[in-house]
Design a protein around this nucleic acid. Sequence first.
DNA 1: GTATTTGCAAAGTTTTTGCACGTGG
DNA 2: CCACGTGCAAAAACTTTGCAAATAC
Lengths: 146, 146
Amino acid sequence: MSPMATEPTQWQARLRESGHRLTPQRELVLAAVQTLGHATPDEVYAEVRTHSDAINLSTVYRTLELLDELGLIHHAHLSDRAPTYHSTSGHEHSHLVCRGCRKVISVERSDMEAALGPLAEREGFEPDYGHLAVFGTCRDCARDDA
Amino acid sequence: MSPMATEPTQWQARLRESGHRLTPQRELVLAAVQTLGHATPDEVYAEVRTHSDAINLSTVYRTLELLDELGLIHHAHLSDRAPTYHSTSGHEHSHLVCRGCRKVISVERSDMEAALGPLAEREGFEPDYGHLAVFGTCRDCARDDA
DNA sequence: GTATTTGCAAAGTTTTTGCACGTGG
DNA sequence: CCACGTGCAAAAACTTTGCAAATAC
Protein backbone atom coordinates (compact mmCIF):
# COMPACT_ATOMS: atom_id res chain seq x y z
CA MET A 1 0.00 0.00 0.00
CA SER A 2 3.04 2.25 0.12
CA PRO A 3 2.76 5.03 -2.41
CA MET A 4 6.37 4.42 -3.38
CA ALA A 5 6.46 0.66 -3.76
CA THR A 6 9.02 1.12 -6.51
CA GLU A 7 12.50 1.44 -5.06
CA PRO A 8 13.62 5.05 -5.19
CA THR A 9 16.49 4.04 -7.43
CA GLN A 10 14.75 1.62 -9.75
CA TRP A 11 13.08 4.11 -12.03
CA GLN A 12 16.20 6.24 -11.98
CA ALA A 13 18.28 3.30 -13.05
CA ARG A 14 15.77 2.46 -15.75
CA LEU A 15 16.09 5.95 -17.18
CA ARG A 16 19.84 6.02 -17.05
CA GLU A 17 20.39 2.62 -18.55
CA SER A 18 18.19 3.56 -21.48
CA GLY A 19 20.25 6.66 -22.08
CA HIS A 20 17.81 9.20 -20.71
CA ARG A 21 18.27 11.91 -18.17
CA LEU A 22 16.82 12.32 -14.73
CA THR A 23 14.73 15.44 -14.69
CA PRO A 24 12.42 16.87 -12.05
CA GLN A 25 9.57 16.70 -14.55
CA ARG A 26 9.98 12.98 -15.04
CA GLU A 27 10.05 12.44 -11.32
CA LEU A 28 6.95 14.58 -10.85
CA VAL A 29 4.96 12.79 -13.53
CA LEU A 30 5.86 9.37 -12.21
CA ALA A 31 4.95 10.38 -8.68
CA ALA A 32 1.62 11.80 -9.87
CA VAL A 33 0.72 8.58 -11.66
CA GLN A 34 1.54 6.61 -8.53
CA THR A 35 -0.51 8.93 -6.38
CA LEU A 36 -3.52 8.96 -8.66
CA GLY A 37 -3.64 5.26 -9.41
CA HIS A 38 -5.46 5.78 -12.70
CA ALA A 39 -5.18 9.02 -14.58
CA THR A 40 -5.50 10.66 -17.97
CA PRO A 41 -2.74 12.97 -19.18
CA ASP A 42 -4.85 15.92 -18.15
CA GLU A 43 -5.34 14.60 -14.65
CA VAL A 44 -1.64 13.93 -14.29
CA TYR A 45 -0.97 17.49 -15.38
CA ALA A 46 -3.44 18.85 -12.84
CA GLU A 47 -1.98 16.72 -10.06
CA VAL A 48 1.55 17.88 -10.74
CA ARG A 49 0.41 21.48 -10.84
CA THR A 50 -0.97 21.26 -7.33
CA HIS A 51 2.56 20.63 -6.11
CA SER A 52 4.54 22.74 -8.45
CA ASP A 53 4.09 24.67 -11.65
CA ALA A 54 7.34 23.44 -13.07
CA ILE A 55 5.71 21.53 -15.86
CA ASN A 56 3.97 21.93 -19.15
CA LEU A 57 1.23 19.80 -20.66
CA SER A 58 3.38 18.87 -23.65
CA THR A 59 5.99 17.60 -21.28
CA VAL A 60 3.39 15.48 -19.53
CA TYR A 61 2.49 13.85 -22.83
CA ARG A 62 6.10 13.31 -23.78
CA THR A 63 6.97 11.98 -20.36
CA LEU A 64 4.04 9.59 -20.12
CA GLU A 65 4.96 8.19 -23.50
CA LEU A 66 8.55 7.72 -22.42
CA LEU A 67 7.72 6.12 -19.09
CA ASP A 68 5.35 3.80 -20.88
CA GLU A 69 8.04 2.74 -23.34
CA LEU A 70 10.38 2.05 -20.47
CA GLY A 71 7.73 -0.02 -18.74
CA LEU A 72 7.60 2.21 -15.67
CA ILE A 73 3.92 2.83 -16.25
CA HIS A 74 1.18 1.23 -18.33
CA HIS A 75 -1.76 2.70 -20.11
CA ALA A 76 -5.22 1.32 -20.83
CA HIS A 77 -8.39 2.75 -22.27
CA LEU A 78 -10.78 2.90 -19.38
CA SER A 79 -13.12 5.36 -20.95
CA ASP A 80 -14.16 5.42 -24.56
CA ARG A 81 -11.94 8.37 -25.09
CA ALA A 82 -8.66 9.14 -23.33
CA PRO A 83 -5.85 6.84 -22.35
CA THR A 84 -5.45 6.19 -18.65
CA TYR A 85 -2.05 5.61 -17.12
CA HIS A 86 -1.20 3.67 -14.03
CA SER A 87 1.93 2.72 -12.20
CA THR A 88 3.52 -0.68 -12.65
CA SER A 89 4.98 -0.63 -9.17
CA GLY A 90 2.03 -2.62 -7.82
CA HIS A 91 0.70 -5.85 -9.30
CA GLU A 92 -0.02 -5.88 -12.96
CA HIS A 93 -3.76 -5.97 -13.32
CA SER A 94 -6.60 -5.88 -15.79
CA HIS A 95 -9.75 -3.80 -15.56
CA LEU A 96 -13.46 -4.42 -15.74
CA VAL A 97 -15.15 -1.11 -16.49
CA CYS A 98 -18.85 -0.57 -15.90
CA ARG A 99 -20.55 1.55 -18.52
CA GLY A 100 -23.37 2.39 -16.15
CA CYS A 101 -21.60 3.75 -13.10
CA ARG A 102 -18.04 4.06 -14.42
CA LYS A 103 -16.86 1.78 -11.62
CA VAL A 104 -13.55 0.05 -12.31
CA ILE A 105 -12.95 -3.42 -10.93
CA SER A 106 -9.31 -4.47 -10.88
CA VAL A 107 -8.52 -8.10 -11.57
CA GLU A 108 -5.18 -9.68 -10.75
CA ARG A 109 -3.15 -10.54 -13.77
CA SER A 110 -2.90 -14.13 -12.62
CA ASP A 111 -6.68 -14.49 -12.52
CA MET A 112 -7.14 -12.94 -15.92
CA GLU A 113 -4.34 -14.99 -17.35
CA ALA A 114 -5.88 -18.16 -16.03
CA ALA A 115 -9.13 -17.29 -17.79
CA LEU A 116 -7.81 -15.95 -21.06
CA GLY A 117 -4.54 -17.83 -21.38
CA PRO A 118 -5.77 -21.03 -23.01
CA LEU A 119 -7.83 -19.21 -25.60
CA ALA A 120 -5.01 -16.80 -26.34
CA GLU A 121 -2.51 -19.59 -26.70
CA ARG A 122 -4.81 -21.40 -29.08
CA GLU A 123 -4.76 -18.27 -31.25
CA GLY A 124 -1.02 -17.81 -30.89
CA PHE A 125 -1.54 -14.52 -29.13
CA GLU A 126 0.06 -13.03 -26.04
CA PRO A 127 -2.32 -10.54 -24.39
CA ASP A 128 -1.08 -7.40 -22.73
CA TYR A 129 -2.88 -7.99 -19.46
CA GLY A 130 -1.86 -4.67 -17.97
CA HIS A 131 -3.57 -2.89 -20.82
CA LEU A 132 -6.72 -4.96 -20.88
CA ALA A 133 -10.00 -3.22 -20.16
CA VAL A 134 -13.23 -5.16 -20.43
CA PHE A 135 -16.28 -2.95 -20.78
CA GLY A 136 -19.64 -4.14 -19.60
CA THR A 137 -22.18 -3.82 -16.85
CA CYS A 138 -21.71 -4.44 -13.17
CA ARG A 139 -24.20 -6.26 -11.00
CA ASP A 140 -25.62 -3.08 -9.51
CA CYS A 141 -26.25 -1.42 -12.84
CA ALA A 142 -27.69 -4.59 -14.36
CA ARG A 143 -30.26 -4.58 -11.57
CA ASP A 144 -31.14 -0.94 -12.16
CA ASP A 145 -31.61 -1.50 -15.87
CA ALA A 146 -34.08 -4.30 -15.36
CA MET B 1 -21.38 -14.35 -45.97
CA SER B 2 -24.04 -12.22 -47.56
CA PRO B 3 -23.30 -8.55 -47.15
CA MET B 4 -26.91 -8.02 -46.16
CA ALA B 5 -27.39 -10.76 -43.60
CA THR B 6 -29.74 -8.41 -41.77
CA GLU B 7 -33.25 -8.63 -43.20
CA PRO B 8 -33.95 -5.56 -45.28
CA THR B 9 -36.78 -4.70 -42.94
CA GLN B 10 -35.17 -5.43 -39.61
CA TRP B 11 -33.10 -2.30 -39.28
CA GLN B 12 -35.95 -0.28 -40.67
CA ALA B 13 -38.28 -1.67 -38.06
CA ARG B 14 -35.72 -0.99 -35.36
CA LEU B 15 -35.56 2.65 -36.38
CA ARG B 16 -39.28 3.09 -36.61
CA GLU B 17 -40.11 1.42 -33.35
CA SER B 18 -37.66 3.68 -31.57
CA GLY B 19 -39.31 6.72 -33.03
CA HIS B 20 -36.68 7.55 -35.62
CA ARG B 21 -36.98 8.16 -39.31
CA LEU B 22 -35.72 6.21 -42.25
CA THR B 23 -33.31 8.36 -44.16
CA PRO B 24 -31.00 7.62 -47.06
CA GLN B 25 -28.04 8.65 -44.90
CA ARG B 26 -28.86 6.09 -42.26
CA GLU B 27 -29.19 3.40 -44.86
CA LEU B 28 -25.91 4.41 -46.48
CA VAL B 29 -23.99 4.41 -43.22
CA LEU B 30 -25.34 1.04 -42.17
CA ALA B 31 -24.52 -0.45 -45.57
CA ALA B 32 -21.00 0.98 -45.43
CA VAL B 33 -20.35 -0.55 -42.01
CA GLN B 34 -21.57 -3.89 -43.27
CA THR B 35 -19.39 -3.66 -46.37
CA LEU B 36 -16.28 -2.62 -44.52
CA GLY B 37 -16.50 -5.05 -41.65
CA HIS B 38 -14.46 -2.85 -39.33
CA ALA B 39 -14.27 0.85 -39.87
CA THR B 40 -13.59 4.16 -38.18
CA PRO B 41 -16.00 7.06 -38.70
CA ASP B 42 -13.62 8.47 -41.28
CA GLU B 43 -13.50 5.24 -43.22
CA VAL B 44 -17.27 4.96 -43.18
CA TYR B 45 -17.49 8.47 -44.52
CA ALA B 46 -15.02 7.69 -47.29
CA GLU B 47 -16.88 4.51 -48.21
CA VAL B 48 -20.21 6.26 -48.45
CA ARG B 49 -18.67 8.99 -50.56
CA THR B 50 -17.52 6.51 -53.17
CA HIS B 51 -21.18 5.72 -53.84
CA SER B 52 -22.75 9.05 -53.31
CA ASP B 53 -21.89 12.45 -51.98
CA ALA B 54 -25.19 12.80 -50.19
CA ILE B 55 -23.62 12.76 -46.77
CA ASN B 56 -21.66 14.87 -44.38
CA LEU B 57 -19.08 13.78 -41.84
CA SER B 58 -21.12 15.16 -38.92
CA THR B 59 -24.00 13.04 -40.06
CA VAL B 60 -21.76 9.99 -40.09
CA TYR B 61 -20.85 10.62 -36.46
CA ARG B 62 -24.43 11.22 -35.45
CA THR B 63 -25.66 8.22 -37.35
CA LEU B 64 -23.04 5.83 -36.03
CA GLU B 65 -23.90 6.91 -32.53
CA LEU B 66 -27.58 6.32 -33.15
CA LEU B 67 -27.15 2.94 -34.79
CA ASP B 68 -24.92 1.92 -31.91
CA GLU B 69 -27.58 2.93 -29.37
CA LEU B 70 -30.15 0.93 -31.27
CA GLY B 71 -27.85 -2.08 -31.29
CA LEU B 72 -27.66 -2.24 -35.07
CA ILE B 73 -23.90 -1.83 -34.93
CA HIS B 74 -21.23 -2.14 -32.25
CA HIS B 75 -18.05 -0.27 -31.65
CA ALA B 76 -14.75 -1.29 -30.15
CA HIS B 77 -11.37 0.36 -29.78
CA LEU B 78 -9.10 -1.53 -32.10
CA SER B 79 -6.44 1.09 -32.26
CA ASP B 80 -5.26 3.19 -29.37
CA ARG B 81 -7.12 6.07 -30.85
CA ALA B 82 -10.33 5.93 -32.89
CA PRO B 83 -13.44 3.85 -32.33
CA THR B 84 -14.09 1.13 -34.87
CA TYR B 85 -17.61 0.15 -35.80
CA HIS B 86 -18.85 -3.16 -37.07
CA SER B 87 -22.15 -4.65 -38.00
CA THR B 88 -24.07 -6.83 -35.61
CA SER B 89 -25.71 -8.75 -38.42
CA GLY B 90 -23.02 -11.44 -38.29
CA HIS B 91 -21.91 -13.25 -35.15
CA GLU B 92 -21.04 -11.12 -32.20
CA HIS B 93 -17.32 -11.40 -31.73
CA SER B 94 -14.40 -10.14 -29.71
CA HIS B 95 -11.05 -8.98 -31.05
CA LEU B 96 -7.41 -9.75 -30.40
CA VAL B 97 -5.36 -6.86 -31.74
CA CYS B 98 -1.64 -7.19 -32.41
CA ARG B 99 0.38 -4.11 -31.53
CA GLY B 100 3.18 -5.18 -33.83
CA CYS B 101 1.44 -5.76 -37.13
CA ARG B 102 -2.03 -4.33 -36.41
CA LYS B 103 -3.54 -7.68 -37.32
CA VAL B 104 -6.98 -8.29 -35.86
CA ILE B 105 -8.02 -11.79 -34.86
CA SER B 106 -11.74 -12.26 -34.40
CA VAL B 107 -12.89 -14.64 -31.68
CA GLU B 108 -16.40 -16.01 -31.50
CA ARG B 109 -18.41 -14.66 -28.65
CA SER B 110 -19.07 -18.16 -27.39
CA ASP B 111 -15.36 -18.91 -27.12
CA MET B 112 -14.61 -15.67 -25.36
CA GLU B 113 -17.56 -16.12 -23.08
CA ALA B 114 -16.42 -19.61 -22.14
CA ALA B 115 -13.04 -18.19 -21.16
CA LEU B 116 -14.09 -15.01 -19.42
CA GLY B 117 -17.52 -15.94 -18.15
CA PRO B 118 -16.59 -17.62 -14.88
CA LEU B 119 -14.26 -14.85 -13.82
CA ALA B 120 -16.77 -12.19 -14.80
CA GLU B 121 -19.53 -13.92 -12.93
CA ARG B 122 -17.34 -14.14 -9.86
CA GLU B 123 -16.98 -10.36 -10.01
CA GLY B 124 -20.67 -9.83 -10.71
CA PHE B 125 -19.87 -8.34 -14.07
CA GLU B 126 -21.40 -8.84 -17.50
CA PRO B 127 -18.85 -8.14 -20.23
CA ASP B 128 -19.79 -6.53 -23.50
CA TYR B 129 -18.18 -9.17 -25.68
CA GLY B 130 -18.88 -7.33 -28.89
CA HIS B 131 -16.87 -4.39 -27.64
CA LEU B 132 -13.97 -6.33 -26.23
CA ALA B 133 -10.56 -5.75 -27.74
CA VAL B 134 -7.56 -7.48 -26.23
CA PHE B 135 -4.27 -5.85 -27.17
CA GLY B 136 -1.11 -7.85 -27.28
CA THR B 137 1.34 -9.55 -29.57
CA CYS B 138 0.67 -12.20 -32.14
CA ARG B 139 2.88 -15.21 -32.70
CA ASP B 140 4.57 -13.75 -35.74
CA CYS B 141 5.49 -10.50 -34.07
CA ALA B 142 6.65 -12.26 -30.92
CA ARG B 143 9.09 -14.21 -33.06
CA ASP B 144 10.37 -11.07 -34.77
CA ASP B 145 10.94 -9.33 -31.47
CA ALA B 146 13.13 -12.10 -30.13
C1' DG C 1 30.73 21.86 -23.27
C1' DT C 2 27.11 19.63 -25.54
C1' DA C 3 23.42 16.56 -26.36
C1' DT C 4 19.10 16.04 -24.24
C1' DT C 5 14.95 18.02 -22.45
C1' DT C 6 11.76 21.61 -21.62
C1' DG C 7 8.51 25.54 -22.42
C1' DC C 8 5.85 27.88 -25.43
C1' DA C 9 3.06 28.71 -29.12
C1' DA C 10 1.28 27.14 -33.19
C1' DA C 11 -0.70 23.61 -35.97
C1' DG C 12 -2.86 19.00 -36.53
C1' DT C 13 -6.46 15.66 -35.77
C1' DT C 14 -10.73 14.10 -34.38
C1' DT C 15 -15.27 14.97 -32.65
C1' DT C 16 -19.10 18.03 -31.26
C1' DT C 17 -22.41 21.80 -31.64
C1' DG C 18 -25.65 25.68 -33.22
C1' DC C 19 -28.67 26.86 -36.50
C1' DA C 20 -31.19 27.46 -40.85
C1' DC C 21 -32.83 24.57 -44.42
C1' DG C 22 -34.70 20.24 -46.10
C1' DT C 23 -37.65 16.17 -45.78
C1' DG C 24 -39.98 11.87 -44.03
C1' DG C 25 -44.26 10.49 -42.20
C1' DC D 1 -47.81 20.45 -42.09
C1' DC D 2 -44.33 19.90 -38.61
C1' DA D 3 -41.12 17.54 -35.92
C1' DC D 4 -37.00 15.26 -36.91
C1' DG D 5 -32.72 15.06 -39.49
C1' DT D 6 -29.07 17.08 -42.35
C1' DG D 7 -25.46 20.22 -44.11
C1' DC D 8 -22.42 23.61 -43.09
C1' DA D 9 -19.22 26.12 -40.65
C1' DA D 10 -17.37 27.23 -36.47
C1' DA D 11 -15.71 25.63 -32.09
C1' DA D 12 -14.17 22.38 -28.84
C1' DA D 13 -11.30 18.72 -27.13
C1' DC D 14 -7.17 16.45 -27.38
C1' DT D 15 -2.47 15.63 -29.01
C1' DT D 16 1.70 16.60 -31.61
C1' DT D 17 5.51 19.44 -33.37
C1' DG D 18 9.26 23.05 -34.28
C1' DC D 19 12.49 25.66 -32.25
C1' DA D 20 15.08 28.50 -28.97
C1' DA D 21 16.36 28.54 -24.21
C1' DA D 22 17.50 25.76 -20.19
C1' DT D 23 19.82 21.99 -18.03
C1' DA D 24 21.65 17.22 -16.79
C1' DC D 25 25.83 15.11 -16.87
